[in-house]
Design a protein around this nucleic acid. Structure first.
Length: 739
DNA sequence: AAAGTACGGGG
DNA sequence: GTGTACGTACTTT
């Protein structure tokens, strides 16, 4: 037996067992194999289980069965089940599917990806520092993690990184369908010509061989680069050596899909993942874009999901996996899919229960010396504090009433959701305080990206609680959380008003309050009392020198929640709901509005703003001139929108539908949820030609619609300047001044 | 005016 | 292998 130490790099099933890759201290990779027997549980009648045994014995795969006692999730009561296991990892999925089709039995723990259960059972996690014993063939005898996923101070192995992209600066190559391949290694860039496929694949293979990267980071690798390399390799008859594992010839593919979530259709490109090496696609990974590699690694470690999968999964799936880990550890049976219907409720109860977060209309206009006080991670904290979990809500044993709605949460049994959330909340808090103490900007950045990744887990966790088909979800649990939330916000409001503060605005977990002449210390004392009264952590987001609650654009006398601009005493600017926050505004307009905001933010009071308005108008006129003279580069004018449906099924001929139709006619496959970039060339369609062009098909000679972009710019400027006397109409009147 | 379509929230 | 809101703004008919 030889002992090895290193970082756990990757885990995947093979015919011999689980393949486990380790990177040693120098970053040298080695593959080991671990024997492992995955299992599922079945419960049912004697006859049902007999039928199950009989059916499975007909499949030529070795299985073992054993009667064991586990805990039923919903009731918490013991249940005798049949444990069915097999040493054949590749046949496991088939066995579970066959069993799943049988009548009269119910399956548990049958649909968890094998690398994940393997990690649960071995108490390991991706990127864990590990020690293992193995024989001369690389078979693992014993293996253990030397650090904990809850550690905030861990080392990441030295990784060799290769970058891949298509030249052409950010254009989606699926839409432009042209451009050479750029390979980045150790700061050097190699450009590969596609004219001779055999030559290209040979060159690419030799770069892979000489640098042997652990991680390939691509832009559009899942949807374009890797599929294209594979087809070139096929056409040239030269094998592509992307995998590090010599036993695996092909890369793993998962189909692309469009799905509906949080009110919108999103598109996820098909995944192309590697064996013994990681491929992550910047353009197909939410968490990489949001929290960088540090955030990705943090999630992989705590959620115990291999890195390539973590990169492409939702943060909700991460938290769901953590719930499953706790369930496995505690012997709780994991339901295959949710079957529980919503419990009966009267119409009135539904009305009360479905209210969601509480909102108070803001007081329109500019206010000075306003404090913003926010509950920290309100919903997850409520779940953890009040033990709100699908299996604890509406339990028979307790009468611990949830405010407003007819529900209760169990006081005797800790719920799976709160149990999962507690260490996550605690770890995020530790990262936040480490950020305060950090010695360097770089160190602070690392902690920030890790806490950001965790934040996203917490955000989606609440959504999962309410989805009626979620594995660990129940609508009453969701409603209980919002009911507690409303009560807490109301309590905080009452504390403020009792102390003589006026409430200017409140939204779900945030309050904006003001008292004439109040000092920061007084606001801090108020925060303290709110925290005491509600029993939940609350933070003073800051004191605004001034804040403007902006009106609705449709009805200028009506305030809208969450549409404001404010400047804190420390100089920070906070903005919600206006054009520069929208992803479908062109960068040019967003930057111009940001510049106007910056100029106004130099004012420390309402009185001073008036003087700054003239400076803001200067900024505006500079941008107007730039537009009019045709000097704005096209990439600054790109509008990016998400297709909500198939390009051909649009009922109204919007610009987006038009551009998408044009791309489709050029042979581009566009799917619901995909984003399309375009530049408006002739909004009114006066030329008779296209009103807009797909950015991917444009070249330097194309012009843009000056009038339309001027309109967008004036709208954005008007949003900011209307409270100070310059609304859109007025700006249109004076715009010629700037010509 | 009505209907269709897109976006933000979270820190 | 996700997690099907809801209000505002703008465009199209």
């Amino acid at each position: 037996m030889t002992e090895t130490t290193g970082w756990l790099f990757d885990v995947y099933p093979s015919s011999e067992g689980m393949v486990v890759w380790l990177l040693d201290d120098e970053g040298k990779p080695t593959a080991f194999v671990d024997r492992y027997e995955p299992y599922f549980y079945a419960s049912g009648s004697r006859e049902g289980l007999r039928l199950l045994r009989q059916r499975l014995s007909r499949i030529k795969v070795p299985i073992r069965t054993e009667r064991v006692e586990r805990t039923e999730f919903w009731s918490g009561r013991p249940l005798e089940v049949l444990k069915v296991s097999t040493p054949n990892l590749l046949a496991y999925g088939h066995l579970a599917r066959v069993a799943g089709r049988l009548e009269g039995i119910e399956l548990f723990n049958c649909d968890i990806p094998l690398p994940q259960v393997y990690l649960f059972e071995r108490n390991l996690f991706p990127l864990a520092r590990c020690r293992l014993d193995c024989d001369t063939e690389g078979r693992i005898g014993a293996m253990e993690a030397l650090d904990s996923p809850w550690s905030t101070n861990y080392a990441i192995p030295p990784l060799r990184v290769m970058g891949l992209r298509i030249e052409g600066g950010g254009v989606n190559p699926n839409h432009s369908r042209r451009g050479r391949l750029e390979v980045e290694l150790d700061g050097a860039t190699y450009t590969l010509e596609p004219d001779d496929p055999a030559e290209l694949i040979h060159t690419f293979n030799s770069l892979l061989e000489s640098h042997d990267p652990d991680l390939i980071i691509t832009e559009w690798g899942d949807s374009f680069i890797i599929p294209r390399l594979m087809s070139l390799s096929g056409a040239a008859g030269v094998p592509l050596l992307l995998n590090r594992d010599p036993r695996k010839q092909k890369v793993a593919s998962r189909r692309a899909r469009s799905y509906f979530t949080y009110g919108k259709t999103v598109y996820q490109a098909g995944a192309r993942t590697l064996f013994g090496r990681w491929h992550v696609d910047r353009c197909n990974s939410f968490i990489l874009g949001e929290a960088g590699l540090e955030g990705l690694f943090e999630l992989a470690r705590i959620a115990k999901i291999p890195v390539q999968r973590t990169a492409r999964t939702s943060t909700g799936t991460c938290i769901s996996n953590m719930q499953m880990e706790l369930a496995v550890r505690d012997g709780i049976l994991i339901p295959w899919r949710k079957r529980r219907a919503e419990e009966f409720k009267t119409g009135l109860e539904l009305l009360t229960a479905d209210k969601g977060g509480l909102t108070y209309q803001p007081v329109l206009g500019v206010h000075e010396n306003v404090a913003e006080i926010d509950f920290s991670s309100m919903y997850p904290t409520i779940m953890a504090t009040y033990n709100v979990s699908p299996e604890t809500v509406g339990c028979a044993c307790c009468r611990n009433a949830v405010p407003e709605i007819n529900a209760s949460t169990c006081q005797r049994r800790e719920g799976l959701v709160p149990k999962t959330l507690r260490p996550i909340l605690e770890k995020r808090a530790r990262y936040k305080s480490l950020m305060q103490e950090a010695g360097s900007k770089k160190e602070r950045g690392v902690y920030d990206r890790r806490q950001c990744a965790i934040k996203w887990m917490l955000v989606t966790c609440f959504g999962y609680l309410g989805y009626k088909n979620a594995r660990f979800g129940k609508i009453e649990a969701h409603e209980s959380v919002t009911a507690y939330g409303r009560e807490k916000l109301l309590q905080a409001k009452e504390v403020a008003e009792a102390r003589g503060f006026a409430l200017l605005h409140a939204l779900t977990d945030s309050l904006w309050v003001k008292k004439e002449g109040a000092t920061e210390t007084e606001y801090e004392a108020l925060r303290e009392e709110m925290a005491r009264a509600t029993g939940l952590p609350i933070g003073l987001e800051g004191v605004y020198l001034w804040i403007a609650f902006l009106p609705s654009k449709v009805s200028p006398k009506i305030p809208v929640p969450n549409r404001f601009v404010g400047v804190f005493t420390d100089g920070r600017v906070k903005i919600r709901g206006i054009e520069m926050r929208r992803s479908d505004m062109p960068p040019f307009v967003k930057k111009a509005q940001a510049e106007i905001v910056r100029v106004l933010s130099e004012a420390g009071s309402v009185e001073e703003i008036k003087a700054k308005v003239d400076d803001a108008l200067e900024v505006l006129s500079g941008h107007l001139v730039e537009l009019r003279e045709g000097r704005v580069p096209l990439n600054e004018l790109v509008i990016r929108k998400r297709l909500s449906k198939d390009p051909l099924s649009y009922k109204k001929k919007s610009i987006l539908a038009e551009v998408a139709g044009e791309l489709v006619s050029r042979g581009v496959a566009l799917r619901p949820g995909e984003k399309v970039d375009y530049v408006i060339t002739d909004f009114e369609g006066r030329s008779g030609g296209p009103r807009a062009r797909a950015y991917a098909t444009m070249d330097g000679s194309c012009g843009y619609d000056v009038g339309k972009y001027t309109g967008l710019l004036l709208e954005a400027a008007g949003t900011m300047l209307a409270p100070f006397g310059y609304d859109y109409q007025r700006l249109v009147e004076i715009a010629p001044l700037s010509a």
